[in-house]
Design a protein around this nucleic acid. Structure first.
Length: 736
DNA sequence: CGGCCTTAATTTTTT
DNA sequence: ATTAAGGCCG
């Protein structure tokens, strides 16, 4: 078979495995996606499975799209029979089909994280929870973690007063979700899981259907996702005699989502639960040149408890990694710009060059420098299209049209654009709604004295001219009613256009000083809907709106994808997973930033950061540039950092430095050097950013100072001992 | 009620 | 630095 050509023996073995469960340990750049897609093509080609019988789960929408594209390229078939998608996407698909069995309204909506938080805040306000003691974010975390552990509020035994209260909020939150017909991300998984647990015939149906299940990025699955898989594969409450074949592909060294519940342990559990006999290791890397791979291997060897895998390459290459020590973040950015220009002049396309950073906040300075140098760039991540406020507003109107009980959507747009509905009015509506156990919309309708949506014929007339948009609750109710009428039987893009116009959103932003982009985005939303309708042509028109709204929540989306434009690629390291580039810049390699300070506290945090660094390194094919800055403006204040430990964990012989080099002055003092005390130096000698040595804590950098003379204290960021305040009078501090 | 102002808090990563 | 929330005045 031609598509088996060019596979190495291990890849071929994996692709052609019989109908058994298997774990594929696929190192970075070892052809993982190729193996997955070829496996699907092979199964279908050999008649072992029909497209209908294949379930392929990926972690990102992008990966799902790519898989679909590559499979369709290999086989002349309509790929729509296959279920290929993300966990959330597939769970959503199940729930849409079986919404009745799952106890959900037909038009249920998906809450993204921001929606979830605002709903939660409302619930907490109702319960009079002190949000000082219970920060909504933490409560949200508790709820999500509980759901990911498969636990409903009723199943949790509170151990203390705090968790009792948390649990009360959790229960109230879920009730409110039901009332509004809203489902958050974790709920998609939990509810579809429960659907299958409780409904044996459904479970049997899907188990029989999906004889072959393939999972990408298995190391990133959480507990609930793994249970979900087991259920569909036939290892549920009433285990089938023979479980389905689960083909799990993963790399423990690239597990970078433990912070949100991913459980690498699933890999070991999997081999046990599915009695896996075939563990295939893909260890040949086809991506990076030897030096880069050596660096990555050396770095990751500092982690303990790995499954054990040794990546090698047949590609030679001794181009050293380049390391730049910059005075500050501006200089670092200039360095990146200069190097990018150099690469570009050598004929490397900008699309083939990527700049990575640990957190989104770091992109700003880089962007500024690139802009000045007139280098086109594209930033991935950051504010997503569907998360922009004007888009959220427009979607909220649509959500109200689809499902009037959506209080979140109601609150978002009831007074936007302003129509004279203030806090007082809303308090009344809220009170009324609570009293009558109805939604805010129900309360508004009652107050406006208009019949509900069951009787659209009794609409009050609504002016099409917007010169004097109706105000007050009546005006709003009339507006939504006429939107609802204007949207029925109309193609989705036109319906959206209608809503954007009628809501007054467009007019509002047209009159705003900086509203140009927002108007453009609203137009873009219509285009997005057009694209969506074309792609989803098999959907029935009445499902189209709900599906589009779900799509918006599930795929926050790279809609401004300017494919074809040659632009430098900028992204967080997380966003870089799965990609590869000719040249890669890893910036901000500083203690506290990368590894991030927040990761230092939790167990395994450093190892996850190291895996993140490993991912970053292994993205590069030919060249890797490392950089760090001694000082950096962050959150409006200058921070003084020392070089990341990850730099030291790469063998020196693989690195070329930008200057005679001192590792940010971590050089051991010459033997016998006199160690002066603090008092011996003039007070003015201590400056921010000064590198110092402490007899006990070792090497560090002064990051803060206060007081004078004998009272003077300095804050030092130590390489190994963390950040400490020291009294200069007593501390044995030496300039390094 | 609504807009404008000040103030405070926030920031790791994202499906 | 940016943004969310809170307070004040028209």
């Amino acid at each position: 078979m031609s598509f088996l050509d060019g596979l190495n023996p291990e890849q071929r073995a994996a692709v052609t495995l019989p109908r058994v469960s298997a774990l594929i340990l696929a190192g970075a750049g070892s052809g993982k996606t190729r193996v997955l897609t070829t496996r699907i093509a092979w199964l279908i080609h050999c008649g072992l499975a029909s497209p209908h019988g294949i379930l392929a789960v990926t972690f990102t929408n992008k990966a799902a799209r790519e898989m679909l594209a590559r499979v369709s390229a290999m086989l002349p078939l309509d790929p729509r029979g296959m279920w290929i998608g993300t966990f959330h996407g597939l769970a959503h698909r199940l729930l849409r089909i079986h919404h009745r069995d799952a106890g959900l309204p037909r038009e249920f909506q998906i809450l993204d994280s921001a929606d979830q938080l605002s709903l939660l805040k409302r619930v907490m306000k109702n319960l009079n929870v002190d949000d000082e003691k219970f920060p909504p974010r933490q409560v949200a975390y508790y709820i999500n973690a509980s759901k990911e552990a498969g636990l409903r509020a009723s199943k949790i035994e509170p151990s203390d007063f705090v968790s009792r209260r948390m649990n009360e909020i959790y229960a109230a939150y879920d009730e409110q979700c039901i009332r509004e017909g809203a489902v958050d991300f974790a709920e998609l998984l939990l509810r579809s899981y429960e659907l299958l647990v409780e409904n044996e015939s459904l479970r049997e149906h899907y188990r029989r259907r999906f004889g072959y299940i393939l999972v990408d990025e298995f190391q990133d699955t959480n507990l609930l996702q793994y249970q979900w898989l087991k259920l569909i594969a036939g290892l549920g409450p009433s285990p089938a005699a023979e479980a389905n074949a689960v083909f799990a592909v993963g790399d423990d060294d690239q597990s970078i989502y433990a912070f949100r519940g991913a459980n690498v342990g699933n890999m070991q559990d999997f081999t046990r639960d599915f009695a896996v006999e075939h563990v295939v290791k893909l260890e040949q890397n086809y991506r990076s040149e030897a030096n880069i791979l050596d660096a990555a291997n050396a770095l990751i060897s500092h982690n303990r408890g790995r499954l054990g895998k040794n990546l090698w390459t047949a590609t030679p290459g001794n181009e050293p990694l380049k390391l730049m020590q910059a005075m500050n973040d501006l200089e670092e950015a200039d360095y990146v710009v200069a190097q990018v220009q150099d690469l570009s002049e050598r004929g490397i396309g900008l699309n083939e060059i990527a700049v990575f950073y640990r957190s989104n906040a770091q992109s700003r300075v880089l962007e500024h420098a690139l802009f000045r140098a007139a280098i086109p760039y594209r930033v991935y991540g950051g504010l997503r299209f569907f998360e922009r406020q004007e888009i959220k507003h427009a979607l909220s109107y649509l959500r109200l049209v689809a499902n009037a009980d959506d209080d979140g959507a109601f609150l978002r747009v009831v007074n936007f654009p302003a129509r004279g509905i203030g806090i007082r009015t809303l308090d009344h509506l809220t009170e009324f709604a609570r009293h009558r156990n109805t939604s805010l919309w129900g309360a508004a309708v009652a107050r406006a004295g208009v019949r509900g949506r069951e009787h659209p014929s009794s609409l009050m007339p609504y002016p099409t001219s917007l010169s004097h948009a109706p105000r007050g609750v009546e005006g709003f109710v009339g507006l939504i009613e006429s939107m609802r009428q204007g949207c029925t039987g109309v193609p989705l893009p036109e319906a959206i256009e209608h809503v954007i116009e009628l809501s007054g959103l467009k007019g509002y932003y047209e009159n705003e000083r900086d509203g140009k982009d927002r108007v453009a985005n609203l137009d873009e939303l219509v285009s997005a809907a057009q694209g969506f309708v074309q792609e989803q042509s098999e959907l029935s028109p009445e499902n189209m709106l709900a599906e589009f709204l779900a799509h918006a929540a599930l795929e926050a989306g790279e809609y401004q994808a300017e494919a074809g434009v040659d632009a430098l690629q900028m992204m967080t390291v997380h966003a870089a997973k799965g990609l590869e580039f000719h040249s890669v810049f890893i910036t901000g390699l500083e203690e506290g930033l990368f590894p991030h300070e927040n990761s230092l506290n939790d167990p395994g945090g450093i190892e996850e950061e190291r895996r993140l660094m490993y991912v970053a390194l292994t993205r590069g094919r030919k060249r890797v540039y490392l950089s760090f800055a001694q000082s950096r403006l962050l959150h409006g204040h200058t921070r003084y950092n020392i070089a990341s430990r990850f730099i030291r964990e790469i063998p020196e012989k693989l690195i070329a430095r930008n200057a005679p080099y001192t590792y940010n002055r971590w050089v051991e003092p010459a033997r016998g050097q006199t160690s002066a005390t603090a008092e011996a130096d003039a007070p003015s000698a201590w400056k921010l950013g000064q590198a110092v040595v402490h007899s006990k804590f070792g090497y560090g950098v002064i990051v803060n100072m206060e007081g004078r003379g004998l009272d003077a204290r300095v804050q030092v960021n130590f390489r190994d001992a963390g950040v400490k305040w020291l009294a200069l009078e007593y501390a044995k501090l030496t300039k390094a």
